[in-house]
Write a protein that binds this DNA or RNA. Structure first.
Length: 137
DNA sequence: GCCAACGTTGGC
DNA sequence: GCCAACGTTGGC
């Protein structure tokens, strides 16, 4: 199972909103690299949910519930979207500051490519963030 | 509010 | 096909 990280500005769409909604369309991606990552996702893959701009921390774990399909909000027809649902919040949100300070995590795509909204997460990065987040696994 | 990174657009 | 201009993202 692959792991991913999804970024959202909390004032646009927050973790709490995802919990309230039960599931949502992850639409509006207009970057090919991010879209390629969406394409590679399979139902059941887990994703960290990161709050950008405000918060600057990973707050929860979401799950892919529908694989890549066309995004009707893209008139060009080039981009697609997935659906995700919430799994559980982190007991302790993991901040960007912590991530940058941790040797295991400092090389994450989140850090290296700050503008990429959908990025892969390596297994050891996943385990380390779960640990920092207070989840035993 | 500023600025770096970076993708896109458009003139040539 | 190159590259300057411009727009957007997102951390600080």
């Amino acid at each position: 199972m692959a792991h991913w990280l999804l970024k959202s500005e909390p004032f646009k769409y927050s973790w709490d909103q995802l919990v309230a909604d039960g599931r949502t369309h992850w639409n509006g991606v207009r970057n090919h690299q991010a879209a390629n990552n969406l394409k590679a996702m399979e139902v059941g893959d887990r994703c960290f949910f990161y709050h950008s701009n405000e918060g600057l921390e990973i707050v929860g774990i979401a799950e892919v519930v529908r694989e890549y399909y066309p995004d009707p909000s893209d008139s060009s027809g080039r981009f697609g979207m997935i659906d995700v649902g919430p799994i559980l919040p982190l007991l302790h949100p993991v901040s960007l500051k912590q991530i940058k300070a941790d040797p295991t995590l400092a090389g994450m795509a989140l850090v290296r490519q700050s503008r990429l909204s959908v990025s892969p997460v390596a297994d050891e990065e996943w385990r380390r963030i779960c640990e920092l987040g207070g989840l035993s696994g």
